[in-house]
């Protein structure tokens, strides 16, 4: 164990961005138990915009030890705290690594933002962008930097498509068209459908050098 700790490369940092209400916290709630089963040593940082609601929801969820969840305030600047000045998030990640070493993975949930938000690669190694069907089938066509540049695009709430007049197949096809070779996955974060594929993608592309 001490040899493993000495050689541990440090926790990988994965960002989760996306508009308000698209399902970022729900995705986290589905991811955490799956990583626990996989044996991934995990901590979480949330960038709540107005309150500590997301951090408190996770702390009370029973899914993860409450002290492994830190909230970082964004000063009403959800872009800034993950891109132009990620130092407060980096500081929180440093604290989590010092307290719970060795960690394999730190998930950073962005405050709800718009389609132009992106994560700085000084902050994260890999980032997901979550949009949802109810936000409109035309979101991929708008080619927002979040939709186009994220390592993994997630389209959530597919079950709502018939109720909001969205052609899910066309939405997914347009997302794939604007993203080239980058991965697009469809999840239902209430039921958990499709979330295993997200864990598999992070395991393959991010945790390849960590315990599995």
């Amino acid at each position: 164990m001490s040899a493993e700790t000495a050689q541990h490369p440090g926790a990988a940092r994965v960002g989760i961005g996306g508009p308000v209400g698209s399902g970022k916290t729900a995705l986290l709630e589905q991811l955490i138990p799956r990583f626990a089963v996989r044996g991934t040593r995990l901590a979480v940082i949330t960038n709540d915009l107005v309150t500590k609601e997301d951090a408190e929801r996770l702390r009370r969820s029973g899914l993860i030890a409450p002290e492994r969840v830190l909230a970082v305030e964004a000063g009403a600047c959800p872009h800034t705290v993950i891109r132009e000045d990620p130092t407060l998030n980096l500081d929180a990640a440093d604290l989590l690594e010092q307290r719970f070493s060795p960690l394999d993975l730190i998930l950073l949930e962005s405050g709800g933002d718009n389609l132009a938000s992106t994560f700085s690669l000084e902050l994260v190694d890999y980032w997901l962008f979550v949009i949802d069907v109810a936000g409109g089938g035309d979101i991929p066509r708008k080619k927002g930097p979040g939709v186009v540049q994220a390592d993994l695009l997630i389209i959530n709430k597919p079950d709502l498509a018939p109720h909001v007049g969205v052609d899910l197949e066309a939405m997914v096809a347009e997302a794939r068209a604007v993203r080239g070779d980058r991965l697009v996955l469809v999840t239902n974060c209430r039921s958990g459908e499709g979330v295993d594929a997200v864990v598999a993608a992070i395991g393959r592309d991010v945790l390849f050098d960590a315990a599995s």
């Binding site: 305030e73 000063g75 600047c77 705290v81 132009e84 000045d85 130092t87 407060l88 500081d91």
Partner: peptide, 12 residues
């Protein structure tokens, strides 16, 4: 103010 040092998150 663009120097990354976190000040934007504080109102004192």
């Amino acid at each position: 103010s663009a120097f990354p040092s976190g000040g934007f998150g504080f109102s004192w």
